[in-house]
Structures are given as structure tokens and as C-alpha cells.
């Protein structure tokens, strides 16, 4: 498993380099997500899939014969595939605060980039579930008058999330406009 992790990071880093060389336009200063989010997601993956692997190996193996233990390969494969995927997904998330708008970019296969002008923000939300709190993480969600605006940044440092919230609220008030 350690091997898989190292391999994943190597591959993911290479991929990150590729996006880093994207055409530069009034240079948004991109910020990635803290490593804690990746750690949390990988831990959740392991917590769910390792017992599942063991169960899938033991239950059919003991009841129906040793050959049936191959079912364990399914969750194991998922685990080995999910580990680097989480890394790539984590690397793909980044945001940039520009003078007048917030940029959020994410996704590996399905890429999405969102631009929200500060003046259009109706509400900024900081959320943190029990698991996230345990890992010291908090998410920031922006709402505009359009429900389709999907501007959220998951897994930030709580202090950073609060700073972002305060800054966005302040900028939103300064540039506020109706519908």
C-alpha cells in the first residue's frame, strides 16, 4: 500500500506540473488545498475498504471454499485505484482571490472552472462536519442569486476559512449590487 501511495504522488506531481504551465493571464495567484483534506479522504477510503476487503476474503472463503476469496480483489482494486485518484483530485482543486472576483478550479477528467464576481455574492457559508472537525478542516461555500453557481472550497484550514469568509463578505459588501 505504501508503494501505491508513493507511485501516486509521483504521478500526481507530474500532472500538477502540466497544469502549472497553463497560459498565464493577469497571473491569478493560485492556492491549493491543505494536505489534511487528502489525508482525511485517504483515511476514510482505507477505513471503509480494508474491512470490506477482509470480509470479502473471509466470508466466502470460509463458507464456500478458498477459491471464492477472489471476491476480495474487487474492494482491493477499488482501494488501489482510489488512492491515486484521490491524490489527483486533491491536486486539481485550487482557488485564487483576484481583485474583483474569486476563481475556483477543480476536476481531473471533468474539469470545471468557476468565476464569481465579489459583487454578486449573497451569502458566504463556512461548514464543518464532525469528521472534518476532527481533522481540523472547514469548507467555504459561496451563494449567489443563481442556484447553479457551484462555488465551494472544501477542506480548508479553519483559520483560513474564516479569513476567506471575512474577506469575501467585506469585498462583497463593498461591491454589492442587486439582481
Amino acid at each position: 500500500m505504501d508503494d501505491a501511495g508513493h507511485a501516486a504522488e509521483g504521478g500526481a506531481a507530474g500532472w500538477g506540473g502540466v497544469t502549472g504551465s497553463a497560459p498565464s493571464r493577469d497571473e491569478p495567484v493560485w492556492t491549493g488545498l491543505p494536505r489534511g483534506l487528502l489525508r482525511m479522504r485517504r483515511l476514510l477510503l482505507v477505513v471503509w475498504l480494508v474491512p470490506l476487503t477482509v470480509a470479502a476474503a473471509l466470508v466466502p472463503g470460509l463458507l464456500a471454499g478458498p477459491g471464492w476469496a477472489v471476491f476480495a480483489l474487487l474492494p482491493l482494486g477499488l482501494l488501489l485505484w482510489g488512492w491515486p485518484m484521490l491524490g489527483r483530485n486533491w491536486l486539481s482543486w485550487r482557488y485564487a482571490e483576484r481583485a474583483d472576483d474569486l476563481l475556483i478550479s477543480r476536476g481531473v477528467l471533468w474539469r470545471e472552472e468557476t468565476v464569481v464576481p465579489y459583487g454578486r455574492m449573497q451569502l458566504v457559508e463556512v461548514t464543518s462536519g464532525p469528521v472534518e472537525r476532527h481533522f481540523g478542516l472547514a469548507g467555504v461555500q459561496l451563494h449567489t442569486a443563481a442556484a447553479a453557481t457551484d462555488a465551494r472550497i472544501p477542506g480548508l484550514d479553519p483559520a483560513e476559512a474564516e479569513r476567506l469568509r471575512d474577506r469575501l463578505t467585506e469585498l462583497g459588501e463593498a461591491r454589492s449590487a442587486g439582481l
Binding site: W110, R111, E112, T114, D150
Partner: peptide, 14 residues
């Protein structure tokens, strides 16, 4: 009237 702008790209589109 624009509230936000998004760019989306699937694997085949890319």
C-alpha cells in the same frame, strides 16, 4: 445580470 461564469470540460471534449 450574470451572477457567475463557469467553464466545464469533459474528457472527450478535452
Amino acid at each position: 445580470k450574470v451572477q457567475s461564469v463557469r467553464l466545464a470540460q469533459g474528457p472527450w471534449e478535452r
